[in-house]
């Protein structure tokens, strides 16, 4: 099979980009989408053209590095899988396939199909953790966690941080990502001491990064490779409301040694 590829090419953040059309070489339907791009790139290199830059690493759907908006859907035509697990048999011989980068102000473009998703790291750094020093932890079984809570926390914790939720949302909102993080830690007893501090800090950082707001369209859930539920966004909204109502903690009285 062969496909016609319409690929976004852009040298760097500041230069203008445009679509370029390429005829794919002969493809095997069992190729993954990224392998198709590998083959295209080998062909381009041999022809003396610069290969298409795209993000990828583990190629088994867990590292969250791969991206791409394929024919209007982040991570390609299937639900619950990442681009790296999309295979060419999902396309027909002669199809035109349009490949665009994730588009969001908070994900500035680096080159061609590569965007910078470090805004996610900064949101995590704002509070996506439990403050426990190495060595200070009590025995793991000293804190029982109801299985239901632990399973639900795991549903959220599986987020691979790919950013497809942002890419799909018409408002480029990062709510599903932040909700997954806040939900995961907020569901566990270990996460309670910092629960409200965390949600405030992470939401504020999310706003600072320039993501849009959630208008509950559900695109994020539909494209998430881990099918993370909108329920977690509701949970985030709830926690943030409580955090706002609680207000900032009273300043502790100062003291000296």
């Amino acid at each position: 099979m062969k496909v016609k590829l319409k690929v976004w090419r852009q040298k760097n953040r500041t230069s203008a980009g445009e679509f370029k059309t390429y005829e794919s070489p002969e493809l095997n339907p069992n190729m993954s989408f990224l392998e198709m791009l590998d083959v295209l790139n080998e062909q381009l290199a041999v022809r003396g053209e610069e290969p298409v830059a795209f993000d990828h690493d583990c190629r088994e759907g867990i590292c969250g590095t791969c991206s791409l908006v394929i024919d209007g859907k982040p991570h390609g035509p299937h639900r619950g899988v990442a681009t790296c697990q999309t295979y060419m048999r999902s396309f027909k011989d002669g199809d035109e396939v349009v490949i665009e980068p994730f588009r969001a102000a908070a994900f500035p473009l680096v080159k061609d199909l590569v965007v910078d998703r470090q805004a996610f790291d900064r949101i995590q750094q704002a509070g996506g953790y439990i403050s426990v020093r190495t060595g200070s932890a009590p025995d793991a079984n000293s804190i029982p966690v109801p299985k239901e809570d632990s399973d639900l926390a795991m549903d959220a914790a599986q987020c691979i941080g790919c950013g497809a939720c942002v890419a799909a949302c018409k408002n480029a909102s990062a709510m599903l990502f932040v909700a997954a993080k806040v939900g995961h830690l907020g569901l566990l007893p270990q996460g309670q001491p910092e629960r409200y501090k965390r949600v405030k800090a992470m939401v504020e950082q999310m706003d600072t990064e320039g993501f849009g707001a959630c208008t509950v369209t559900g695109s994020c859930e539909a494209v998430c490779p881990k099918s993370i539920s909108l329920d977690f966004i509701a949970r985030l909204n709830r926690d943030y409301a409580v955090a706002l109502l609680k207000g900032d903690p009273k300043k502790a009285a100062s003291g000296g040694a």
Partner: peptide, 13 residues
């Protein structure tokens, strides 16, 4: 938050 629109529409589902 989305200064450049998608050529293919976006807002899936």
């Amino acid at each position: 938050a989305r200064p450049v629109a998608y050529a293919t529409g976006g807002a899936y589902a």
